[in-house]
Amino acid sequence: MTSIGTIIFLLVGGVAGGLLSSVASMASLASYPVLLAVGIPPVYANVTNDAALIWTSIGSTISSTKELKGHWKQVGFFSIFTVLGSIIGCSLLLSFPSNVFEKVVPIFIAFSGIMVLVTGKHHSLTPKKRANWQRILYIIALLGMGAYTGYFGAAGGVIVLVLLTYITNDRFIVINAIKNVITGLANLVALIIFAFTSHIYWLQAIPLAIGMFIGGYIGPIILRHVSAKIIRIFIACLAFFQAGYFFYKAYL
């Protein structure tokens, strides 16, 4: 049985994770350690975290209907690639251990942190001024990030955010809203697959999910009142922090 204290702990951790996910794509900085702290083994904590993470996307999507208005065709198009990629990634995870990616994850995350800062300077370019092959390359990269989400997923949302910044010409808050939806769908597909192939600690996942829904709903509201530049710096700092953490885990 889960105690009241544990439920509150998971709920608070979920709110923190939901805020980090909807604002900075870094939910696992809060939610994953919380699950480990209540005694769930690492592998199952990762799957259980995925089960709760879906509700962050639901909360942020409901809260971002204003930003998503007129962009649902884009969401549907990009989701095709992330969802197909997620299916591929889950298949790979069932065949190969996740530590195959662990060595390169810190590099990916650190690079994403740099790109979050750099893309702010180039965002004035319109899609028409970018070569078609570049846009195709970025879209194919979305397929790869969908696979990454299904396979390992650490900070994948930051990389997707960077890709969308180059593919589209929308405001940062709109791009972030699109990112929340398409990564949420990729996580949902991964959850459905893992629900039949792994073990989910539902008693712990439920209070964490409630907290993530709350945090996911609040996140976009905060974004409307904060400078995009400040958010980019915040995301980059968290990316560098997480890159350091995963580097330590992989190499030290």
Rank of each mutant, 00 (worst) to 15 (best):
A141T: 08
I80V: 10
I200W: 02
P220R: 10
R135H: 02
T56Y: 12
F247M: 09
V160H: 03
T126P: 09
V105T: 00
M145E: 01
L36C: 00
S25D: 01
P127H: 09
S112V: 02
L35P: 00
A195M: 15
Y138N: 08
A243I: 00
G219K: 11
G244P: 03
I139V: 13
T168H: 13
L238V: 04
S64Y: 01
F213N: 08
P127F: 11
A51D: 07
A141V: 05
T6R: 02
L143R: 00
G219A: 11
A37K: 10
I230R: 09
I178E: 00
L252A: 06
A190F: 11
K69Q: 12
L191N: 01
S95M: 11
A27T: 15
F9H: 02
Q74P: 02
T149P: 05
T183L: 09
I7Y: 07
N49F: 05
W55F: 00
I54F: 11
H71F: 13
A195T: 14
G215C: 02
I206A: 12
I200L: 12
G211Q: 09
K249W: 03
R224P: 03
L53N: 15
K73W: 06
G113F: 13
V116T: 07
R224F: 01
M212G: 01
G85H: 04
L163Q: 03
H122Y: 15
I192G: 13
A228T: 06
T56M: 08
K129H: 11
L11I: 02
L208W: 01
K179T: 02
L208M: 15
F247T: 08
L125R: 14
V162G: 15
L252C: 01
V34G: 05
V23N: 10
L223P: 03
P97M: 09
S22W: 12
S64P: 04
L10Q: 09
I173E: 14
G184S: 06
A239C: 03
Y32S: 07
P127K: 02
I175K: 13
P106S: 01
G144T: 00
V34M: 15
S64K: 07
D170I: 07
S112R: 05
R232N: 13
K249R: 07
A30V: 06
K69Y: 12
G76M: 01
N99T: 10
V158C: 07
I159W: 13
I173C: 06
G150M: 06
T168Y: 15
G157K: 13
A16N: 10
I109H: 04
I200E: 00
I54A: 07
Y201A: 08
G150I: 12
L137Q: 08
G157F: 13
K128W: 10
S21W: 09
S198H: 15
V118A: 12
L238I: 14
I136W: 09
A243N: 00
M26A: 15
G216R: 00
K179Y: 05
S31T: 15
T149D: 11
I193V: 14
I182Y: 04
V23T: 14
I54L: 14
Y148S: 07
V158T: 12
N180G: 08
C90R: 04
M212W: 00
P127T: 07
I192T: 15
N187L: 08
D170V: 06
F108W: 14
T119M: 13
M26Q: 15
I182R: 04
S3V: 02
S63Y: 08
L142S: 00
I87T: 07
R224I: 03
V105E: 02
